[in-house]
């Protein structure tokens, strides 16, 4: 039998990496930047976090290092897109490839070593899981209630108007990109430090892409991101249980299930939202567009 409470706790863990990455990307996209490099930033965080945790023996320092590494690897993307006005889609894809390659190269010495153990938080859940859950209302409050969040949304909605009102579009966007990188880094490190407990090449396994999809279909809201992450996490846990129970379905199909389920549900939701551009807020108006001011 499957215990629903235990299953839910597992779901929380399984959804944490995507939750972090998607919340970060949510802030980035609300600022009007489309960063397709989430996967690359996650894998960078996974390696850097693991290495930092291993060398210091402190997993919390590992997560701090992962956040720093994620933000740092996002900076070239920020410079390319905000100062040199490179195409955001191409630069983001390059960031993903760059991060995957870099992590594979520097990860060689980390292969086969074990992560230091981490003391669990309340309810026996990982502290980082709690942090992720806390980030959902925090980011919602930041975006919808704070002055800084209002400016960030303004920049993402209409960068020309924001500039005309005297807001520094570039600075807001660079800060958002760095934040997105840090969040993706923490998400990636959760996989290496807290889930798998070791480093393997390509271990993020497409979680960054799922995070990107969730942001779009969440209608660019924090609660929507949480729902999407839980959906993915839930199906992941369920299919692992089914595999363990020896259900006679090919393993490949079961492994595919979380991705498939997430995409199907999200497409169904977005089909309904398609015509609500006027009524409700959807894509930020300046998403993915270059900004250049004449002085």
């Amino acid at each position: 039998m499957i215990d629903p409470v235990a299953l839910f706790l597992l779901l929380l863990s399984a959804s944490t990496p995507i939750l972090f990455a998607a919340l970060g990307e949510l802030v980035v996209e609300r600022a009007g930047v489309l960063n397709l490099g989430v996967e690359g930033m996650m894998i960078t965080g996974a390696l850097a976090g693991f290495a930092a945790a291993y060398h210091t023996g402190n997993p919390f320092l590992g997560f701090a290092g992962a956040a720093l590494a994620g933000a740092l690897i996002a900076l070239p993307f920020a410079v390319l897109t905000q100062f040199l006005l490179s195409n955001q889609v191409a630069s983001g894809l390059a960031l993903t490839l760059f991060g995957l390659g870099l992590a594979a190269l520097f990860g060689k010495p980390m292969e086969g070593v074990k992560a230091p153990a981490m003391s669990p938080g309340p309810l026996g859940l990982n502290w980082i899981v709690w942090l992720g859950l806390l980030m959902v209302p925090a980011i919602w409050w930041f975006l919808n209630r704070s002055r800084a969040g209002l400016i960030l949304r303004g920049v993402g909605e209409n960068h020309d108007a924001a500039h005309a009102l005297g807001y520094d579009v570039r600075r807001v966007r660079i800060a958002a990109i760095a934040f997105g990188g840090a969040m993706a880094g923490i998400g990636g490190a959760f996989i290496s430090i807290s889930t798998v407990l070791q480093w393997t090449e390509g271990m993020t396994a497409g979680a960054g892409w799922i995070a990107l999809a969730i942001v779009v279909f969440s209608n660019w809201t924090a609660p929507g991101v949480l729902a999407g992450a839980w959906l993915f996490g839930g199906v992941t846990v369920l299919q692992l249980r089914l595999q363990a129970a020896g259900v006679r379905v090919p393993v490949q199909l079961l492994s595919m299930a979380p991705y498939l389920a997430t995409i199907i549900v999200l497409v169904a939701i977005s089909a309904r939202q398609k015509f609500s551009r006027r009524a409700g807020g959807t894509a930020p108006g300046s998403l993915g567009q270059d900004f250049h001011a004449l002085r």
Partner: peptide, 28 residues
Amino acid sequence: AARAAGVAMVFQHFSLFDALTVAENIAL
């Protein structure tokens, strides 16, 4: 700085944010 000095401007192409409310636009 110009606003602080007492200059206000209404633009030819409106500098408004479509997805935001009237109050949010004014606050910005």
